[in-house]
Design a protein around this nucleic acid. Structure first.
Length: 439
RNA sequence: GCCGUCGUGGCUCAGUCCGGUUAGAGCGUCUGACUGUUAAUCAGGUGGCCGCAGGUUCGAAUCCUGCCGACGGCGCCA
């Protein structure tokens, strides 16, 4: 490797004007004009124009520069010039232009459809658009680890192959290997509830698999959930942790990814507002009142909120909102009744969802966990589950049970909201959906 | 599971309602020109079993039937 290779971003910083540098990367755009060739080269840090002249390069190297197609990998060195005509304000006049590997005709050109880009995702992830999103994604998952570790949480890794269903109604990916029916994880929850008895406060960032028949811009079959579970924690404290986590993530992205947000054309005023505002908490019952009074929508009490209702509610807010105390009957078996909630016309659960603004939907779902084994059995049977399959789960209630709560955060939904993406499929490098498992 | 939109060169599309020469355009690529391009420009060339299978017709990209595939919305969920 050549000595003196530096990241393109550093060259654009300005301190190298008049000095000789080396950069390496891939040709991003190419134009030629007689005895000059203008090659925009990208590496992971940025793009810079390389202006090759016939009289400054050996003939063979100049010919290479003229004929190299987009995505050809190159190592170049030369003097840096400040020049207003160059994108980014600086360019390199090479006296060495080395092609590492010529590229075939790159299939992705000016006009592309969403479908074509997804078919060629292995190439499309080289784009500035996908690069920006993947960098932000890295900040988001890194922030999640940092947030929980700073607060004394321990990372806990659950099994991905699991024998039981946890979320009632969701569809499972079956794995054919063991004699017993086995599935890919939909949540770490049952295992997390076992682990809090030693670690007390735990979190994870793990893949989740849901074989739902959902074809929307908000659904993936394989996505990442960032979950937490904490012993001794009641539901109110739990939802406050979720609010803090979201704010922490936004702050880290604003600190580290301004350039990437700009590449995406994402205005940041609303994200900055979220840092200082407090996220409202309302009850499900209040949410129905709001829908009726402000929007004339009559939702019968007891029905879970649908997409249209969530979006309508969010029209009234400019930050995420926590909605608590959904009807017990509409909730998963492990969410306990809240006997203290008196203002509701029916039984409600100690649970919450956090809804994101602008139609990005439910980004967090959590609850306190029922510790009453008889109640758990009753609601498992309601969901058509055999309580006999949950023996290990009931054991967690038999040996020194304590109140505990937890939630799951949809990593891609948070990324889609922060990045302002039209489709959640762009929030993950290789999306898997109802209809796609390639490339 | 329900509803809707769409399949035409490598890519993006027009043409389809109302059937009629040899199916067009832009981009890419290739050849040539050009000493400052900004998704350069100019000239020329290349490239198509019109998703698949039947049917109607003198004649089908166009009309009919079936199938396949893609995309989006709802429901459900993060």
């Amino acid at each position: 490797m050549d000595c003196g290779i530096i990241p393109i971003r550093e060259v654009l910083g300005g301190g190298y004007a008049g000095k000789k540098v080396g950069v390496r990367g891939w040709i991003y755009r190419t134009r030629s004009s007689g005895s000059k060739a203008f090659l925009v080269v990208r590496d992971s840090s940025g793009i810079i124009q390389v202006t090759a002249s016939r009289d400054e390069l050996p003939e063979r190297e100049f010919d290479d520069a003229k004929k190299a197609l987009i995505e050809t990998s190159v190592v170049v060195s030369g003097k840096v010039f400040e020049d207003k005509r160059a994108p980014g304000g600086y360019e390199i006049h090479p006296d060495k232009f080395g092609v590492v590997s010529f590229a075939d005709v790159f299939p992705i050109t000016k006009d592309q459809s969403e479908e074509f880009l997804r078919d060629n995702r292995h190439l499309w992830i080289r784009s500035r658009y996908m690069t920006a999103i993947m960098k932000i994604r890295s900040t988001v998952t890194g922030a999640i680890h940092e947030f929980f570790r700073e607060r004394g949480y321990c990372e806990f890794t659950p099994p991905i192959l699991q024998p039981n269903q946890c979320e009632g109604g969701s569809t499972l990916f079956e794995v054919k290997y063991y004699g017993e029916k086995t599935y890919l994880s939909q949540t770490w929850q049952l295992y997390a509830e076992a682990a809090i008895f030693s670690l007390e406060k735990i979190y994870d960032v793990s893949p989740t698999f849901r074989a739902e028949k959902s074809k929307t811009s908000r659904h993936l079959s394989e996505f990442w959930m960032a979950e937490m579970e904490a012993a001794w924690m009641e539901i109110d404290e739990c939802s406050e942790v979720a609010k803090d986590e979201i704010k922490f993530i936004i702050r880290k992205v604003l600190e580290n990814n301004r350039d990437d947000l700009e590449v995406l054309g994402r205005e940041t005023a609303d994200l900055e507002h979220c840092l200082n505002a407090s996220f409202p908490t309302i009850t499900y019952t209040d949410a129905l009142k709001l829908l009726k009074e402000k929007d004339g929508m009559d939702v019968p009490w007891g029905k879970d909120l649908r997409t249209i209702e969530e979006e309508t509610i969010m029209n009234h807010f400019d930050t995420p909102v926590v909605v608590t105390h959904y009807p017990k009957e509409a909730m998963a078996f492990y969410k306990p009744v809240d006997p203290a909630a008196k203002d509701a016309p029916g039984q409600v659960a100690k649970c919450f969802d956090m809804l994101a603004p602008k139609g990005y939907g439910e980004i967090v779902g959590g609850s306190q966990r029922d510790t009453d084994v008889e109640e758990l059995k009753k609601y498992l049977e309601r969901d058509g589950e055999d309580p006999a399959n949950y023996k290990f789960y009931f054991d967690t209630r038999r040996y020194g049970s304590v109140p505990h709560s937890g939630y799951g955060l949809g990593v891609e939904r948070v990324i889609a909201w922060i990045c302002g993406l039209e489709n959640i499929k762009d929030a993950i490098p290789f999306p898997r959906t109802l209809a796609r498992c390639s490339p």
